[in-house]
Design a protein around this nucleic acid. Structure first.
Length: 543
RNA sequence: GGGCCUGUAGCUCAGUACGGUAGAGCGAUGGGCUCUUAACCCAUUGGCCAAGGGUUCAAAUCCCUUCAGGCCCGCCA
Protein backbone atom coordinates (compact mmCIF):
# COMPACT_ATOMS: atom_id res chain seq x y z
CA UNK A 1 0.00 0.00 0.00
CA UNK A 2 1.09 3.54 -0.66
CA UNK A 3 2.59 5.11 2.40
CA UNK A 4 1.94 8.73 3.08
CA UNK A 5 5.29 9.49 4.61
CA UNK A 6 5.43 12.33 7.04
CA UNK A 7 7.80 10.94 9.59
CA UNK A 8 7.30 9.95 13.18
CA UNK A 9 4.05 10.39 15.12
CA UNK A 10 5.72 12.78 17.53
CA UNK A 11 5.65 15.39 14.76
CA UNK A 12 1.87 15.52 14.99
CA UNK A 13 2.01 16.07 18.74
CA UNK A 14 4.52 18.86 18.31
CA UNK A 15 2.37 20.47 15.61
CA UNK A 16 -0.45 20.69 18.14
CA UNK A 17 1.84 22.01 20.85
CA UNK A 18 3.01 24.79 18.59
CA UNK A 19 -0.55 25.63 17.60
CA UNK A 20 -1.30 26.48 21.23
CA UNK A 21 1.07 29.39 21.01
CA UNK A 22 2.28 29.12 24.60
CA UNK A 23 4.91 31.64 25.52
CA UNK A 24 7.12 28.98 27.03
CA UNK A 25 6.77 25.28 26.29
CA UNK A 26 6.72 23.20 29.46
CA UNK A 27 6.53 19.43 29.25
CA UNK A 28 5.56 17.55 32.38
CA UNK A 29 5.61 14.03 33.62
CA UNK A 30 5.12 12.57 37.07
CA UNK A 31 5.49 9.39 39.05
CA UNK A 32 4.66 8.25 42.54
CA UNK A 33 7.64 6.45 44.09
CA UNK A 34 5.47 3.91 45.88
CA UNK A 35 7.97 1.15 45.15
CA UNK A 36 10.36 0.12 42.41
CA UNK A 37 9.59 2.25 39.35
CA UNK A 38 9.30 -0.03 36.35
CA UNK A 39 10.06 0.44 32.65
CA UNK A 40 6.41 1.23 31.94
CA UNK A 41 7.09 4.64 33.42
CA UNK A 42 9.72 5.15 30.73
CA UNK A 43 7.02 5.30 28.12
CA UNK A 44 5.95 8.64 29.51
CA UNK A 45 9.56 9.80 29.84
CA UNK A 46 10.43 8.81 26.28
CA UNK A 47 7.36 10.46 24.79
CA UNK A 48 8.40 13.67 26.55
CA UNK A 49 11.96 13.24 25.40
CA UNK A 50 10.79 12.68 21.82
CA UNK A 51 8.64 15.80 22.00
CA UNK A 52 11.56 17.79 23.30
CA UNK A 53 13.86 16.55 20.56
CA UNK A 54 11.34 17.30 17.85
CA UNK A 55 10.92 20.81 19.24
CA UNK A 56 14.67 21.20 19.31
CA UNK A 57 14.87 20.04 15.69
CA UNK A 58 12.54 22.91 14.85
CA UNK A 59 14.67 25.30 16.86
CA UNK A 60 12.29 25.63 19.79
CA UNK A 61 13.48 25.55 23.36
CA UNK A 62 11.44 23.81 26.06
CA UNK A 63 11.45 22.80 29.71
CA UNK A 64 11.02 19.18 30.76
CA UNK A 65 10.03 18.60 34.39
CA UNK A 66 9.69 15.29 36.14
CA UNK A 67 7.62 15.54 39.29
CA UNK A 68 8.23 12.94 41.95
CA UNK A 69 5.01 12.56 43.91
CA UNK A 70 6.89 12.07 47.14
CA UNK A 71 4.19 13.72 49.23
CA UNK A 72 1.63 10.99 48.57
CA UNK A 73 0.97 8.64 51.48
CA UNK A 74 2.46 5.17 51.42
CA UNK A 75 -0.58 2.99 51.04
CA UNK A 76 0.84 -0.49 51.05
CA UNK A 77 4.12 -2.32 51.08
CA UNK A 78 4.73 -3.74 47.62
CA UNK A 79 4.80 -7.52 47.35
CA UNK A 80 8.33 -8.83 47.25
CA UNK A 81 9.84 -5.92 49.14
CA UNK A 82 11.56 -6.88 52.35
CA UNK A 83 11.07 -4.27 55.05
CA UNK A 84 12.22 -4.02 58.66
CA UNK A 85 9.94 -5.32 61.38
CA UNK A 86 7.22 -2.90 62.37
CA UNK A 87 7.31 -1.12 59.03
CA UNK A 88 3.49 -1.20 58.83
CA UNK A 89 3.63 1.67 61.32
CA UNK A 90 4.81 3.86 58.45
CA UNK A 91 1.64 3.34 56.39
CA UNK A 92 -0.16 6.60 55.88
CA UNK A 93 2.91 8.81 56.12
CA UNK A 94 4.08 10.79 53.11
CA UNK A 95 6.56 8.74 51.07
CA UNK A 96 9.15 11.43 51.73
CA UNK A 97 8.81 10.88 55.48
CA UNK A 98 9.02 7.10 55.43
CA UNK A 99 12.51 5.75 56.16
CA UNK A 100 14.32 3.98 53.37
CA UNK A 101 13.92 0.25 54.12
CA UNK A 102 17.36 -0.28 52.60
CA UNK A 103 18.88 2.48 54.68
CA UNK A 104 20.82 4.07 51.84
CA UNK A 105 18.68 7.13 51.05
CA UNK A 106 17.05 9.82 53.10
CA UNK A 107 13.58 8.36 52.58
CA UNK A 108 11.49 5.67 50.94
CA UNK A 109 10.56 8.14 48.20
CA UNK A 110 14.17 9.08 47.57
CA UNK A 111 15.30 5.49 47.41
CA UNK A 112 13.00 4.46 44.58
CA UNK A 113 12.96 7.81 42.83
CA UNK A 114 16.76 8.07 42.81
CA UNK A 115 17.15 4.56 41.53
CA UNK A 116 14.99 5.51 38.57
CA UNK A 117 16.44 8.98 38.06
CA UNK A 118 19.98 7.68 38.12
CA UNK A 119 19.22 5.62 35.02
CA UNK A 120 17.72 8.44 33.02
CA UNK A 121 20.94 9.87 31.56
CA UNK A 122 21.71 6.36 30.33
CA UNK A 123 18.46 6.49 28.42
CA UNK A 124 19.29 9.87 26.96
CA UNK A 125 17.18 12.08 29.20
CA UNK A 126 17.79 14.57 31.93
CA UNK A 127 14.54 16.17 33.07
CA UNK A 128 14.44 18.67 35.92
CA UNK A 129 13.57 16.75 39.05
CA UNK A 130 10.96 18.22 41.37
CA UNK A 131 10.00 16.48 44.59
CA UNK A 132 6.43 17.31 45.51
CA UNK A 133 7.08 17.34 49.28
CA UNK A 134 9.43 20.25 48.60
CA UNK A 135 7.13 21.84 46.06
CA UNK A 136 4.33 22.01 48.63
CA UNK A 137 6.38 24.31 50.83
CA UNK A 138 6.46 26.91 48.03
CA UNK A 139 4.18 29.96 48.08
CA UNK A 140 2.70 29.00 44.71
CA UNK A 141 1.28 25.77 46.12
CA UNK A 142 0.11 27.50 49.31
CA UNK A 143 -1.66 29.92 47.01
CA UNK A 144 -3.30 27.05 45.14
CA UNK A 145 -4.55 25.65 48.44
CA UNK A 146 -6.10 29.00 49.33
CA UNK A 147 -7.72 29.20 45.91
CA UNK A 148 -9.21 25.75 46.41
CA UNK A 149 -10.68 26.70 49.78
CA UNK A 150 -12.03 29.91 48.35
CA UNK A 151 -13.80 28.15 45.49
CA UNK A 152 -14.64 24.96 47.34
CA UNK A 153 -18.33 24.85 46.45
CA UNK A 154 -17.59 25.24 42.79
CA UNK A 155 -14.96 22.52 43.04
CA UNK A 156 -17.36 20.17 44.80
CA UNK A 157 -19.86 20.64 42.01
CA UNK A 158 -17.26 19.75 39.40
CA UNK A 159 -16.22 16.70 41.33
CA UNK A 160 -19.78 15.46 41.76
CA UNK A 161 -20.27 15.71 38.04
CA UNK A 162 -17.24 13.58 37.26
CA UNK A 163 -17.70 10.98 39.91
CA UNK A 164 -21.33 10.45 38.95
CA UNK A 165 -22.33 10.88 42.56
CA UNK A 166 -26.06 10.96 43.20
CA UNK A 167 -27.43 14.46 43.04
CA UNK A 168 -27.49 15.84 46.54
CA UNK A 169 -28.69 19.11 47.86
CA UNK A 170 -25.09 20.02 48.46
CA UNK A 171 -25.15 20.45 52.19
CA UNK A 172 -24.14 16.85 52.94
CA UNK A 173 -21.01 16.98 50.79
CA UNK A 174 -18.20 17.34 53.31
CA UNK A 175 -15.50 16.37 50.84
CA UNK A 176 -12.41 18.53 51.02
CA UNK A 177 -9.28 18.05 48.92
CA UNK A 178 -6.97 19.73 51.42
CA UNK A 179 -5.12 17.17 53.52
CA UNK A 180 -2.92 17.89 56.50
CA UNK A 181 0.11 15.97 57.72
CA UNK A 182 -0.52 15.26 61.40
CA UNK A 183 1.97 17.05 63.64
CA UNK A 184 1.65 14.26 66.21
CA UNK A 185 2.00 11.02 64.24
CA UNK A 186 3.27 12.31 60.91
CA UNK A 187 0.56 10.63 58.85
CA UNK A 188 -1.39 12.26 56.08
CA UNK A 189 -3.96 9.47 55.88
CA UNK A 190 -4.96 6.39 57.79
CA UNK A 191 -4.72 3.02 56.17
CA UNK A 192 -6.91 0.76 58.21
CA UNK A 193 -9.09 -1.16 55.85
CA UNK A 194 -9.38 1.76 53.44
CA UNK A 195 -7.60 4.99 52.71
CA UNK A 196 -8.97 7.81 54.81
CA UNK A 197 -7.21 11.11 54.17
CA UNK A 198 -6.69 13.63 56.93
CA UNK A 199 -9.17 16.26 55.96
CA UNK A 200 -9.24 19.69 57.42
CA UNK A 201 -12.17 20.61 59.67
CA UNK A 202 -12.35 24.35 59.40
CA UNK A 203 -10.52 27.24 57.88
CA UNK A 204 -10.45 30.98 57.99
CA UNK A 205 -8.75 32.52 55.03
CA UNK A 206 -8.81 35.97 56.58
CA UNK A 207 -6.89 34.82 59.62
CA UNK A 208 -4.95 32.23 57.62
CA UNK A 209 -5.97 29.49 60.02
CA UNK A 210 -6.83 25.84 59.62
CA UNK A 211 -7.89 23.08 61.97
CA UNK A 212 -7.75 19.40 61.19
CA UNK A 213 -8.30 16.02 62.77
CA UNK A 214 -5.88 13.18 62.14
CA UNK A 215 -7.76 10.16 60.84
CA UNK A 216 -5.01 7.90 62.12
CA UNK A 217 -4.28 9.01 65.69
CA UNK A 218 -7.19 11.35 66.30
CA UNK A 219 -4.98 14.34 67.06
CA UNK A 220 -6.66 17.67 66.57
CA UNK A 221 -4.32 20.32 65.28
CA UNK A 222 -4.43 23.86 64.05
CA UNK A 223 -2.14 26.37 62.46
CA UNK A 224 -1.50 28.73 59.62
CA UNK A 225 -1.64 27.63 56.00
CA UNK A 226 1.92 28.76 55.45
CA UNK A 227 3.18 26.74 58.43
CA UNK A 228 1.17 23.54 58.26
CA UNK A 229 2.16 20.68 55.99
CA UNK A 230 -0.71 20.56 53.56
CA UNK A 231 -1.36 18.66 50.38
CA UNK A 232 -4.12 18.57 47.80
CA UNK A 233 -5.71 15.27 46.89
CA UNK A 234 -4.90 13.65 43.60
CA UNK A 235 -7.03 15.20 40.90
CA UNK A 236 -6.86 18.66 42.36
CA UNK A 237 -3.17 18.29 43.05
CA UNK A 238 -2.61 17.50 39.40
CA UNK A 239 -4.40 20.56 38.08
CA UNK A 240 -2.77 22.82 40.66
CA UNK A 241 0.63 21.79 39.34
CA UNK A 242 -0.51 22.33 35.76
CA UNK A 243 -1.54 25.84 36.64
CA UNK A 244 1.52 26.63 38.74
CA UNK A 245 3.94 25.51 36.04
CA UNK A 246 1.79 26.60 33.07
CA UNK A 247 2.19 23.10 31.65
CA UNK A 248 1.93 22.83 27.87
CA UNK A 249 1.80 19.09 27.56
CA UNK A 250 1.67 16.13 29.91
CA UNK A 251 1.31 12.57 28.68
CA UNK A 252 -0.69 10.23 30.86
CA UNK A 253 -1.52 6.55 31.02
CA UNK A 254 -4.73 5.55 29.35
CA UNK A 255 -6.26 4.88 32.74
CA UNK A 256 -6.30 8.60 33.45
CA UNK A 257 -7.34 9.56 29.97
CA UNK A 258 -10.68 7.81 29.70
CA UNK A 259 -13.83 9.85 29.42
CA UNK A 260 -14.63 11.53 32.73
CA UNK A 261 -11.36 10.23 34.14
CA UNK A 262 -8.73 12.10 36.07
CA UNK A 263 -7.51 14.07 33.06
CA UNK A 264 -10.95 15.32 32.06
CA UNK A 265 -11.77 16.43 35.55
CA UNK A 266 -8.29 17.84 36.04
CA UNK A 267 -8.65 20.02 32.96
CA UNK A 268 -11.96 21.42 34.12
CA UNK A 269 -10.62 22.09 37.59
CA UNK A 270 -7.59 23.73 36.08
CA UNK A 271 -9.73 26.03 33.96
CA UNK A 272 -12.54 26.79 36.39
CA UNK A 273 -10.65 26.91 39.66
CA UNK A 274 -7.12 27.91 38.73
CA UNK A 275 -7.87 29.86 35.58
CA UNK A 276 -5.39 28.09 33.33
CA UNK A 277 -6.38 26.26 30.16
CA UNK A 278 -4.41 23.13 31.08
CA UNK A 279 -2.00 21.00 29.11
CA UNK A 280 -2.34 19.13 25.85
CA UNK A 281 -3.24 15.56 26.65
CA UNK A 282 -1.24 12.73 25.13
CA UNK A 283 -2.45 9.35 26.25
CA UNK A 284 -0.61 6.11 26.03
CA UNK A 285 -1.17 2.43 26.67
CA UNK A 286 0.65 0.33 29.18
CA UNK A 287 3.62 -1.92 28.94
CA UNK A 288 2.91 -5.44 30.02
CA UNK A 289 5.29 -8.06 31.27
CA UNK A 290 4.12 -10.84 29.01
CA UNK A 291 0.39 -10.93 29.58
CA UNK A 292 0.37 -9.14 32.89
CA UNK A 293 0.22 -5.43 33.47
CA UNK A 294 3.14 -4.27 35.55
CA UNK A 295 1.94 -3.53 39.02
CA UNK A 296 4.25 -2.06 41.60
CA UNK A 297 2.12 -3.12 44.53
CA UNK A 298 1.92 -6.70 43.29
CA UNK A 299 5.64 -6.84 42.79
CA UNK A 300 5.31 -7.48 39.04
CA UNK A 301 7.96 -5.15 37.79
CA UNK A 302 10.94 -4.83 35.57
CA UNK A 303 12.96 -1.72 36.23
CA UNK A 304 15.15 0.45 33.99
CA UNK A 305 18.07 -0.58 36.21
CA UNK A 306 17.41 -4.19 35.34
CA UNK A 307 17.15 -3.25 31.67
CA UNK A 308 20.52 -1.54 31.60
CA UNK A 309 22.12 -4.65 32.97
CA UNK A 310 20.98 -6.78 30.06
CA UNK A 311 20.42 -4.55 27.03
CA UNK A 312 21.43 -1.26 25.43
CA UNK A 313 19.20 1.63 26.51
CA UNK A 314 18.64 2.63 22.88
CA UNK A 315 16.88 -0.67 22.38
CA UNK A 316 14.28 0.26 25.01
CA UNK A 317 13.77 3.66 23.41
CA UNK A 318 13.28 1.83 20.15
CA UNK A 319 10.84 -0.68 21.62
CA UNK A 320 8.75 2.13 23.06
CA UNK A 321 9.06 4.86 20.46
CA UNK A 322 8.46 2.54 17.52
CA UNK A 323 5.02 1.70 18.86
CA UNK A 324 2.00 3.92 18.53
CA UNK A 325 1.37 5.36 22.00
CA UNK A 326 -2.14 3.92 22.06
CA UNK A 327 -1.00 0.35 21.51
CA UNK A 328 0.08 -1.74 24.38
CA UNK A 329 3.56 -3.18 24.34
CA UNK A 330 4.19 -6.63 25.57
CA UNK A 331 7.67 -7.10 26.91
CA UNK A 332 9.42 -10.26 27.97
CA UNK A 333 13.08 -10.38 29.01
CA UNK A 334 13.50 -13.65 27.08
CA UNK A 335 13.02 -11.65 23.90
CA UNK A 336 15.87 -9.26 24.52
CA UNK A 337 18.01 -10.60 21.64
CA UNK A 338 15.18 -9.86 19.19
CA UNK A 339 14.66 -6.43 20.65
CA UNK A 340 18.33 -5.56 20.34
CA UNK A 341 18.49 -6.98 16.82
CA UNK A 342 15.55 -4.80 15.85
CA UNK A 343 17.40 -1.73 16.99
CA UNK A 344 20.56 -2.81 15.16
CA UNK A 345 18.55 -3.31 11.98
CA UNK A 346 17.07 0.16 12.25
CA UNK A 347 20.57 1.51 12.72
CA UNK A 348 21.82 -0.22 9.58
CA UNK A 349 18.86 1.14 7.63
CA UNK A 350 19.55 4.62 8.93
CA UNK A 351 23.11 4.47 7.66
CA UNK A 352 22.06 2.93 4.36
CA UNK A 353 23.81 -0.36 5.01
CA UNK A 354 20.58 -2.31 4.80
CA UNK A 355 17.61 -1.60 2.58
CA UNK A 356 14.41 -0.70 4.42
CA UNK A 357 11.44 -3.05 4.03
CA UNK A 358 9.52 -1.91 0.95
CA UNK A 359 6.43 -1.01 2.95
CA UNK A 360 8.22 1.21 5.42
CA UNK A 361 8.51 4.94 5.12
CA UNK A 362 12.16 5.90 5.13
CA UNK A 363 11.50 9.32 6.60
CA UNK A 364 9.71 7.67 9.51
CA UNK A 365 12.61 5.28 10.06
CA UNK A 366 15.16 8.07 10.01
CA UNK A 367 13.12 10.09 12.50
CA UNK A 368 12.74 7.07 14.68
CA UNK A 369 16.45 6.33 14.76
CA UNK A 370 17.30 9.90 15.72
CA UNK A 371 14.79 9.60 18.57
CA UNK A 372 16.30 6.35 19.80
CA UNK A 373 19.96 7.23 20.10
CA UNK A 374 21.12 8.73 23.35
CA UNK A 375 22.22 12.04 21.92
CA UNK A 376 23.03 12.58 18.26
CA UNK A 377 23.54 9.86 15.67
CA UNK A 378 27.19 9.00 15.04
CA UNK A 379 28.75 10.25 11.83
CA UNK A 380 28.95 6.76 10.43
CA UNK A 381 27.50 3.42 11.40
CA UNK A 382 29.14 2.11 14.56
CA UNK A 383 30.36 -1.47 14.40
CA UNK A 384 28.11 -3.43 16.75
CA UNK A 385 28.58 -6.83 18.20
CA UNK A 386 25.45 -8.87 17.40
CA UNK A 387 23.70 -9.65 20.66
CA UNK A 388 23.23 -13.32 19.84
CA UNK A 389 26.92 -13.69 19.20
CA UNK A 390 27.64 -12.05 22.50
CA UNK A 391 25.20 -14.35 24.27
CA UNK A 392 27.04 -17.35 22.86
CA UNK A 393 30.61 -16.36 23.36
CA UNK A 394 30.18 -15.16 26.93
CA UNK A 395 29.28 -18.69 27.83
CA UNK A 396 32.81 -19.65 26.94
CA UNK A 397 34.28 -17.20 29.35
CA UNK A 398 34.93 -19.78 32.07
CA UNK A 399 37.23 -21.67 29.71
CA UNK A 400 38.52 -18.91 27.42
CA UNK A 401 39.02 -16.18 29.97
CA UNK A 402 37.59 -12.70 29.58
CA UNK A 403 40.52 -11.21 27.65
CA UNK A 404 40.16 -13.74 24.90
CA UNK A 405 36.40 -13.33 24.80
CA UNK A 406 36.78 -9.59 24.34
CA UNK A 407 39.53 -9.93 21.76
CA UNK A 408 37.51 -12.40 19.69
CA UNK A 409 34.41 -10.27 19.91
CA UNK A 410 36.21 -7.13 18.81
CA UNK A 411 37.70 -9.06 15.92
CA UNK A 412 34.29 -10.41 14.92
CA UNK A 413 32.55 -7.03 15.11
CA UNK A 414 35.31 -5.49 13.01
CA UNK A 415 35.10 -8.25 10.42
CA UNK A 416 31.31 -7.91 10.13
CA UNK A 417 31.66 -4.24 9.43
CA UNK A 418 34.70 -4.67 7.20
CA UNK A 419 36.93 -2.63 9.43
CA UNK A 420 40.46 -3.39 10.42
CA UNK A 421 40.11 -1.96 13.88
CA UNK A 422 37.45 -0.50 16.12
CA UNK A 423 37.19 3.01 17.45
CA UNK A 424 37.35 3.56 21.16
CA UNK A 425 33.57 3.92 21.31
CA UNK A 426 32.99 0.78 19.30
CA UNK A 427 35.37 -1.26 21.41
CA UNK A 428 33.73 -0.13 24.62
CA UNK A 429 30.32 -0.83 23.12
CA UNK A 430 31.44 -4.38 22.37
CA UNK A 431 32.58 -4.79 25.96
CA UNK A 432 29.29 -3.39 27.24
CA UNK A 433 27.28 -5.77 25.10
CA UNK A 434 29.30 -8.71 26.33
CA UNK A 435 28.60 -7.89 29.92
CA UNK A 436 24.91 -7.32 29.15
CA UNK A 437 24.66 -10.60 27.31
CA UNK A 438 26.39 -12.34 30.16
CA UNK A 439 23.81 -11.02 32.61
CA UNK A 440 21.01 -11.92 30.25
CA UNK A 441 22.23 -15.50 29.87
CA UNK A 442 22.41 -16.05 33.59
CA UNK A 443 19.15 -14.29 34.44
CA UNK A 444 16.69 -14.69 31.59
CA UNK A 445 17.94 -16.81 28.71
CA UNK A 446 15.69 -19.72 27.76
CA UNK A 447 17.23 -23.17 27.96
CA UNK A 448 17.84 -23.37 24.22
CA UNK A 449 20.07 -20.32 24.29
CA UNK A 450 22.28 -21.77 26.98
CA UNK A 451 24.89 -24.44 26.74
CA UNK A 452 27.08 -26.13 29.20
CA UNK A 453 29.89 -28.56 28.80
CA UNK A 454 28.66 -32.06 29.44
CA UNK A 455 31.17 -33.02 32.09
CA UNK A 456 29.17 -35.71 33.79
CA UNK A 457 28.79 -39.33 32.75
CA UNK A 458 28.49 -39.62 29.01
CA UNK A 459 24.89 -40.44 28.19
CA UNK A 460 25.23 -40.87 24.46
CA UNK A 461 26.89 -43.57 22.50
CA UNK A 462 27.70 -43.15 18.83
CA UNK A 463 26.71 -46.28 16.91
CA UNK A 464 26.95 -45.15 13.30
CA UNK A 465 30.21 -46.54 11.88
CA UNK A 466 31.10 -43.41 9.85
CA UNK A 467 30.40 -41.15 12.77
CA UNK A 468 32.58 -43.34 15.00
CA UNK A 469 35.45 -43.06 12.57
CA UNK A 470 34.96 -39.33 12.31
CA UNK A 471 34.97 -38.73 16.03
CA UNK A 472 38.03 -40.95 16.41
CA UNK A 473 39.87 -38.98 13.74
CA UNK A 474 39.04 -35.69 15.36
CA UNK A 475 40.47 -37.01 18.61
CA UNK A 476 43.58 -37.85 16.63
CA UNK A 477 43.72 -34.35 15.19
CA UNK A 478 43.59 -32.89 18.66
CA UNK A 479 46.58 -34.90 19.75
CA UNK A 480 48.62 -33.21 17.03
CA UNK A 481 48.34 -29.78 18.67
CA UNK A 482 47.24 -27.98 15.51
CA UNK A 483 46.58 -24.27 15.21
CA UNK A 484 43.02 -23.07 15.39
CA UNK A 485 42.51 -22.69 11.67
CA UNK A 486 44.32 -25.95 10.86
CA UNK A 487 42.12 -27.74 13.32
CA UNK A 488 38.94 -26.21 11.93
CA UNK A 489 39.97 -27.09 8.40
CA UNK A 490 41.10 -30.52 9.51
CA UNK A 491 37.65 -31.24 10.87
CA UNK A 492 36.04 -30.25 7.59
CA UNK A 493 38.45 -32.33 5.59
CA UNK A 494 38.01 -35.34 7.79
CA UNK A 495 34.25 -35.12 7.38
CA UNK A 496 34.55 -34.76 3.62
CA UNK A 497 36.98 -37.62 3.32
CA UNK A 498 34.53 -39.84 5.13
CA UNK A 499 31.73 -38.62 2.89
CA UNK A 500 29.79 -37.11 5.80
CA UNK A 501 27.51 -34.16 5.60
CA UNK A 502 29.22 -31.24 7.27
CA UNK A 503 26.23 -30.34 9.38
CA UNK A 504 25.89 -33.88 10.70
CA UNK A 505 29.59 -34.09 11.41
CA UNK A 506 29.51 -30.99 13.57
CA UNK A 507 26.30 -32.06 15.21
CA UNK A 508 27.81 -35.27 16.49
CA UNK A 509 30.68 -33.39 18.13
CA UNK A 510 28.34 -30.87 19.70
CA UNK A 511 26.20 -33.66 21.05
CA UNK A 512 29.18 -35.19 22.78
CA UNK A 513 30.51 -31.92 24.16
CA UNK A 514 27.47 -29.83 25.01
CA UNK A 515 24.52 -32.09 24.38
CA UNK A 516 23.16 -29.98 21.56
CA UNK A 517 23.00 -30.06 17.75
CA UNK A 518 24.77 -26.76 17.33
CA UNK A 519 27.13 -24.65 19.27
CA UNK A 520 29.87 -22.10 19.25
CA UNK A 521 32.63 -22.27 16.68
CA UNK A 522 34.22 -25.60 17.26
CA UNK A 523 37.98 -25.23 16.91
CA UNK A 524 38.35 -22.46 19.48
CA UNK A 525 36.08 -24.38 21.80
CA UNK A 526 38.13 -27.57 21.49
CA UNK A 527 41.40 -25.74 21.94
CA UNK A 528 40.14 -23.92 24.97
CA UNK A 529 39.41 -27.17 26.74
CA UNK A 530 41.89 -29.42 28.43
CA UNK A 531 43.30 -31.49 25.58
CA UNK A 532 43.53 -34.84 27.32
CA UNK A 533 40.06 -34.48 28.73
CA UNK A 534 38.54 -33.80 25.29
CA UNK A 535 40.41 -36.63 23.64
CA UNK A 536 39.28 -39.02 26.34
CA UNK A 537 35.73 -37.73 26.08
CA UNK A 538 35.58 -38.25 22.33
CA UNK A 539 37.17 -41.69 22.48
CA UNK A 540 34.83 -42.96 25.17
CA UNK A 541 31.81 -41.81 23.17
CA UNK A 542 32.71 -44.16 20.34
CA UNK A 543 34.07 -47.10 22.28
C1' G B 1 -24.29 -0.72 35.70
C1' G B 2 -21.76 3.30 32.46
C1' G B 3 -17.40 4.23 29.32
C1' C B 4 -12.47 3.62 26.70
C1' C B 5 -8.67 0.65 24.24
C1' U B 6 -7.17 -3.88 21.91
C1' G B 7 -8.06 -8.58 18.86
C1' U B 8 -4.14 -9.36 11.56
C1' A B 9 0.73 -15.85 10.02
C1' G B 10 3.42 -20.41 15.51
C1' C B 11 5.48 -15.47 18.06
C1' U B 12 6.06 -9.85 17.99
C1' C B 13 3.73 -6.49 15.21
C1' A B 14 2.91 -3.01 10.28
C1' G B 15 -1.29 -1.98 7.31
C1' U B 16 -7.24 1.00 9.51
C1' A B 17 -7.39 8.95 9.71
C1' C B 18 -8.25 8.81 2.87
C1' G B 19 -11.95 1.17 1.19
C1' G B 20 -8.80 -1.07 -4.42
C1' U B 21 -7.13 -8.80 -4.82
C1' A B 22 -3.25 -9.85 2.92
C1' G B 23 2.81 -7.51 4.70
C1' A B 24 7.62 -7.47 7.70
C1' G B 25 10.86 -9.50 11.32
C1' C B 26 11.56 -13.79 14.11
C1' G B 27 10.34 -19.14 13.90
C1' A B 28 9.67 -23.67 11.05
C1' U B 29 11.04 -26.53 6.54
C1' G B 30 14.31 -27.40 2.28
C1' G B 31 18.70 -26.20 -0.29
C1' G B 32 23.52 -23.78 -0.79
C1' C B 33 28.21 -22.27 1.18
C1' U B 34 37.26 -24.48 0.42
C1' C B 35 32.61 -24.36 5.03
C1' U B 36 29.10 -22.53 11.04
C1' U B 37 31.12 -18.27 17.31
C1' A B 38 23.02 -21.05 17.37
C1' A B 39 26.51 -17.46 11.24
C1' C B 40 25.39 -16.21 6.23
C1' C B 41 22.73 -16.61 1.34
C1' C B 42 18.51 -18.45 -1.41
C1' A B 43 13.85 -20.64 -1.55
C1' U B 44 9.51 -22.59 0.69
C1' U B 45 6.01 -22.58 4.44
C1' G B 46 2.57 -20.10 6.57
C1' G B 47 -3.62 -16.02 7.80
C1' C B 48 -12.17 -17.17 7.16
C1' C B 49 -7.52 -10.12 9.13
C1' A B 50 -11.80 -12.64 16.72
C1' A B 51 -17.25 -14.06 15.02
C1' G B 52 -21.71 -12.57 12.53
C1' G B 53 -24.41 -9.10 9.74
C1' G B 54 -24.79 -4.35 6.85
C1' U B 55 -23.13 -0.37 3.20
C1' U B 56 -20.30 -0.77 -1.56
C1' C B 57 -18.58 -2.59 -8.16
C1' A B 58 -14.89 -3.43 -4.14
C1' A B 59 -14.11 -3.94 3.26
C1' A B 60 -8.63 -6.00 7.64
C1' U B 61 -10.04 -0.75 6.67
C1' C B 62 -16.65 2.38 7.11
C1' C B 63 -21.50 1.04 10.10
C1' C B 64 -24.19 -2.35 13.60
C1' U B 65 -24.21 -6.67 16.90
C1' U B 66 -21.68 -10.45 19.57
C1' C B 67 -17.40 -12.77 21.84
C1' A B 68 -12.52 -12.50 24.22
C1' G B 69 -8.52 -9.69 26.77
C1' G B 70 -6.91 -5.13 29.22
C1' C B 71 -8.35 -0.65 31.64
C1' C B 72 -11.27 3.56 33.87
C1' C B 73 -15.61 5.40 36.77
C1' G B 74 -12.26 5.55 44.99
C1' C B 75 -5.79 6.24 45.60
C1' C B 76 -2.49 3.85 41.65
C1' A B 77 2.04 5.05 34.10
Amino acid sequence: MFTMGGGHWVRGIVDEIIKRGDERIVIHTGKTPSGPIHIGAEREQFICSAIQRELERRGIDSTFNFIIDSYDPIKSIPAGLTVPKGFEEELGKPLSAVPDPFGCHSSYAHHFAEEFIRCQPEFGLSPNIIYSHELYTKPEMKGAIKTVLMKLDQLKAIRRKYLHLPEEDGTADDWNPVMAVCEECGRIASMKREVIPNKIDSWDLEKDEITYTCSACGHKGQGKIRDLSLKLSWRVDWSAKWAVFRVTCEPAGKDHCVKDGAYDMGLEVCQEIFGYRGPLRVSYEWLTLGEHAMKTHKGITFTPMEWIKIAPPEALRHLILSADPMRHISFLPERIPDIVDNFDRLERIYYGIEAPPPTEDLEYLRDLYALCVKEKPHESAPARLPYRFAATIVQLEPILGSDKVIAKSVEYAARLHMKTSLSEYEASDVARRLSMASNWVSLYAPAQARFKLSTGALDIRISDETERKFVGSVAGLLERDLSESDLQNGIFETARTLGMEIGKAFAVLYRILIGSERGPRLAPLLLALDRDWVVERLRSAVQ
